[in-house]
Amino acid sequence: MSTVSPADAPSVEDLAPVFEVSEVRREGDRVVYVGRPRAPPSTIESELAPLFYERGFDLRLAARSEARAPRHVLIATRRSIGIDGVPWKNIALALATVLTTLYAGTVWYHIDVTAEPLNLLKAWPFSLAILTILGVHEFGHYVTSRIHRVDASLPYFIPIPPPFGTAGAIIRMRGRIPSRKALLDIGASGPLAGIVATVVVTVIGLSLDPITVSRSVATSDAARIEFAEPLLLRGLAWLTSQPLSYADPTKQLHPLVFAGWLGMLVTFLNLLPVGQLDGGHVLRALAGPRQETVAAAIPAVLFGFAGLLLLFGDATVEVGIWIVWGVFTTVLAFFGPATPIRETSLDRKRQAVGLLTFLVGVLCFMPIPFRIIV
């Protein structure tokens, strides 16, 4: 039995004010402190976690029942923020998303791939635009996670069939977030970086000549999708003096404009203030534990919004997006938000960044993102 801490871990004396240590042992990359709390167990982690965090450890308190008396253990695990080995799953999903976005691009470019499958490659600008928007968004999170020494995975892209080709991308936050400041930085960096890429892609798309389709395609009786115009898209069209529609039905907006539109939709959905969505992170950093009250109301708001659109709006199946997200946010609200180790409030600069982030979401909002015209 030892009561001497390893040199790289906090000492017994460091813990003494809130935790009386009777034994210390090393278990691989973990340091285990056995003893009894001198403060309420619910406060031990928040009291000691910053001390361990500075030494490169994540901390967890656990209770162990024994015949003589219950004991508590502090388990300090060495934090790793590097990438171990080749991230094959990330690579495979990224390659799959390249294929699905290429295929989705052939829909918007009206490229026929049935006779010549290699025509798929002609849709590369659309695929590159989508992957750039999503990649910049997720690497915004990843870089700030590394800055704050929080363990996070590389992005996982999510491939789906056309017309979108992707459902976005995510990163996994495996480490504890040290403070509300770090939570705000990590949560806001993705949407803010992603919206810059979205604006660039959209402006490029607006500046390019519209694509031309045959009159038979333009006047076809087949169902088509009509997309809404969020405030940000309208503003960019106004600033660039470019139209968002054409009187000639054979002319259609360049597919890069649709890629920007998709970036705006993904940004808004990510900024819903619930669970571990980006909006949930930002609001948790701004409002503290009160964020959970807001998050609990979000599913009801989405279901109610869908109901109002069905009753009073000119839409039916299109409102399914809000029903689906109502279910999704219900699950997210149940599991709760990320909880920072330190609950220190934010300075005015970061409060402004948080409000700016939600303003971006407002500019990307679309009551009915798309309509199916039959």
Rank of each mutant, 00 (worst) to 15 (best):
W88L: 05
R79P: 01
D278C: 14
E45A: 13
D14V: 10
V31K: 15
I133P: 05
L359Q: 00
R25V: 12
A62H: 04
N119E: 13
V319W: 15
V34Q: 15
G135Y: 04
A9L: 11
L256R: 02
T198H: 00
L183R: 11
E138T: 09
A49D: 13
I133G: 02
G275C: 11
G313C: 15
F268E: 12
A16K: 12
S153N: 04
L192F: 06
I186S: 10
L363A: 10
D151R: 07
S207K: 07
L118E: 10
F370Y: 08
L233A: 03
F164M: 08
P37R: 02
R174D: 09
S5T: 10
T43W: 11
V324M: 14
V31G: 13
A123G: 06
P230V: 05
I195R: 07
T77Y: 03
G168Q: 01
S5H: 14
S5P: 15
L154I: 12
P178E: 11
W261R: 03
I321V: 15
V317Y: 15
L232E: 05
S2H: 14
R64S: 12
V324Y: 14
P155V: 10
I160L: 07
V21A: 11
G260F: 00
L302I: 15
G82A: 06
G263N: 05
A197T: 01
T329Q: 06
G105M: 04
W108P: 06
S220V: 03
P255G: 02
I83T: 13
A115W: 07
F334A: 15
L184I: 03
E226S: 15
R36H: 13
T250R: 12
T240R: 09
S214R: 04
E318C: 14
H137I: 04
V199Y: 05
V266S: 11
L208A: 04
V18P: 11
A9P: 13
P163D: 03
Y142P: 08
P117T: 10
L356V: 04
A123Q: 06
D185I: 00
Y156V: 06
G235L: 03
P299I: 03
R64I: 07
L208R: 00
K89T: 01
R176Y: 05
G82P: 07
R79H: 02
S345Y: 01
I211L: 12
P117M: 13
V257N: 01
L346W: 02
F328L: 12
V360H: 04
Q252N: 10
R26H: 10
L208K: 04
I81P: 09
E20Y: 07
E318V: 13
T101A: 00
D112W: 08
L309N: 14
T101D: 01
E292Y: 02
L99Y: 11
F52N: 09
T344D: 10
T144E: 11
P340G: 08
Q291V: 11
R36P: 09
L184G: 08
A333L: 06
I195K: 04
T100R: 04
P191R: 01
I321K: 12
R146Q: 05
G260Q: 00
L233D: 00
